[in-house]
């Protein structure tokens, strides 16, 4: 079984984001990490490989710095490392096309990824890639097992959770799971260092990136929060609750 895991390198969730000249200054990011949900996808992929045999193909589309994350994935057991040069594309539909083409090139049977990446928090990649692959997609899963030709997975439902199954090429987008993530060890790190990263481009993949009809105008710091508002007396609770919903959008 060929298991593809899609990984994205993002600023560590604790890192400061500095903006200069209307753009996030990527050079000022103190630490880049594998996006947290991707770590669960990777762990589940490794477990699936250990149970069913096969190879784990770690794929990322991003700038050169993201190769480091592939090496990290190799340190815990990824077999093949694929880096797709992002060629400056930021339109997620383009990224999905590149990822899907790589998945086909490496003949993956199943694709695991995070439910969303911790930078844009969009969540388009899993279902978008599934669409291009004409594959089934289950999002927000916490575990996936392969038995008797079926993938069995858990996803949340209105009443709690549900166990669902799929067959054939499937894409699973992971939420934070219950599985414990493995640590690398020195042996893994030494082997990872020797592992070749296969670098490919859109032309290797025969993907034509059409012009995007979205344009990034600017990235700015979030608007300053309004000064604190203080209310005397419990009769104001309902006012505050509606502010929490309408001003703050947090409930």
């Amino acid at each position: 079984m060929n298991i593809a895991v899609l990984l994205k390198q993002v600023p560590d969730t604790t890192a400061k984001i500095i903006i200069s000249g209307g753009k996030v200054d990527e050079n000022s990011v103190s630490k880049w990490s594998m996006s947290p949900y991707d770590e669960y996808a990777l762990e589940s992929g490794l477990q699936m490989k250990e149970k069913n045999g096969g190879a784990l193909i770690a794929i990322t589309c991003g700038p050169d710095r993201s190769k480091k994350m592939l090496t990290d994935a190799a340190a815990v057991g990824a077999d093949t490392l694929v880096h797709i040069s992002d060629e400056g594309v930021s339109d997620s539909t383009h990224v999905q096309q590149l990822l899907a083409a790589a998945i086909m090139k490496y003949e993956a049977d199943v694709v695991l990824c995070g439910k969303q990446a911790a930078d844009t928090n969009a969540g388009s990649t899993g279902p978008g890639v599934a669409e291009i692959l004409e594959a089934t997609c289950v999002t927000l899963v916490s575990e996936v097992n392969y038995t008797d030709g079926k993938y069995i997975t858990m996803r949340p439902s209105n009443t709690g959770s549900e166990k669902v199954s799929t067959q054939g090429t499937s894409v699973f987008a992971f939420d934070k799971g219950t599985v414990e993530l493995r640590r690398p060890n020195v042996r893994g790190i030494m082997m990872a260092k020797k592992k070749n990263i296969e670098s490919i481009t859109s032309s290797d993949l025969d993907v034509n990136l059409n012009n995007s009809n979205i344009n990034l105008d600017s990235q700015m710091p979030p608007p300053e929060k309004a000064a604190g508002q203080k209310f005397e007396g419990a009769e104001h609770v309902s006012t505050v609750v509606s502010k929490l919903r309408n001003e703050a959008n947090v409930i």
């Binding site: 480091k68 340190a75 690398p184 020195v186 790190i189 030494m190 260092k193």
Partner: peptide
């Protein structure tokens, strides 16, 4: 080296 930094992070 990158390997040394990976050991550090681990």
């Amino acid at each position: 080296s990158e390997e040394e930094r990976m050991v550090r992070d681990m």
